[in-house]
Structure formats: structure tokens, C-alpha cells
Design a protein around this nucleic acid. Sequence first.
DNA 1: GCCAACGTTGGC
DNA 2: GCCAACGTTGGC
Length: 146
Amino acid sequence: MKSEPDVFSFDQLRKRRKEPWSGVRNYQARNFMRDGMSVGDPVLFYHSSCAEPGVQGLGKVASKAYPDPTQFERGGEYFEPKATREKPVWWLVDIAWAADFARPVTLEMLRKDKRLADLLILRPGNRLSITPVTAAELRTIAGLGG
DNA sequence: GCCAACGTTGGC
DNA sequence: GCCAACGTTGGC
């Protein structure tokens, strides 16, 4: 899961322990949270749009999917006029801090590792903020992080 | 349903 | 700030 550290960093997640992953406004990313995640699933926390993009550490899914409350905030940045309480449009999960890496796994390190050739985030033009990884990819990246 | 215009993402 | 690569929007 990507996050811009200027907006919400892995350090902030560690301090807060848990954070609702609100504000996702892409259907594919929403579907991964709503349909593809279970409580306890490991999460790679990736910093994007910063000096050194890369995976900072591990989080974990800390709730089942529930409606993103920001879609109901009239006048707010994430207000969704099409959403109703009965038929929400946007869903999220809570993400909890799980473990630090000894070192961040930089984008450069990800690119250099042949085992990660199929990692979705490395595909040209990938802009999805949430992408699935295989168990093998997770192990590889966690290994690189020490 | 098509598709051009537009907005956003994200590395550099 | 640039720009490639997308996703979304809206007229038709």
C-alpha cells in the first residue's frame, strides 16, 4: 500500500498503531480492500512521491472492510455525492503497524531483484495505490529489509 | 458505447 | 517542473 510520507508516513503509523485507510477513490484499489483483504493479512507500506521511494516496513490489516466515512462529509475533500448510508460507494480497512525493517527497501533495490520481476508496482505507468503481492514477493521484500 | 479532453500519479 | 501513463468524465 502506497502512501506519500508528507501526507501519512510509516513513522506516523507506528506512533498511532492503527489508521483507517480513508480517501481511496479508485475502484480497483477499493475492490482490493473490500474483497481481497482479511484481518491479519500482512501489508507492505510503501512511500511514494518522496526523495527515496520504497517499502518502509510491515503493516497488517486490522479490520474488515467498512464504508469510508469521509465519503459522507459534505464539503470535504473526499465527499461522494453518489454515496448513501444504505449504498456506500467507497470502502476501507484499518491498517495497523506490524514490524520495522532494519533498512528501507528502496525502489532501486526492488528493481534490481530478479525475483521481483513481476511485482505490479514496478510495471510501467502503474498508479494504483493498492496492489496485491504474492507470498513469495512478500518474503523476498521482507528479506531485503532485514 | 466511443473517444477526446482532462486530471492525477509518481519517478526523475 | 517535466512528462509518460493511466483513470475518469461527458458529449455525442
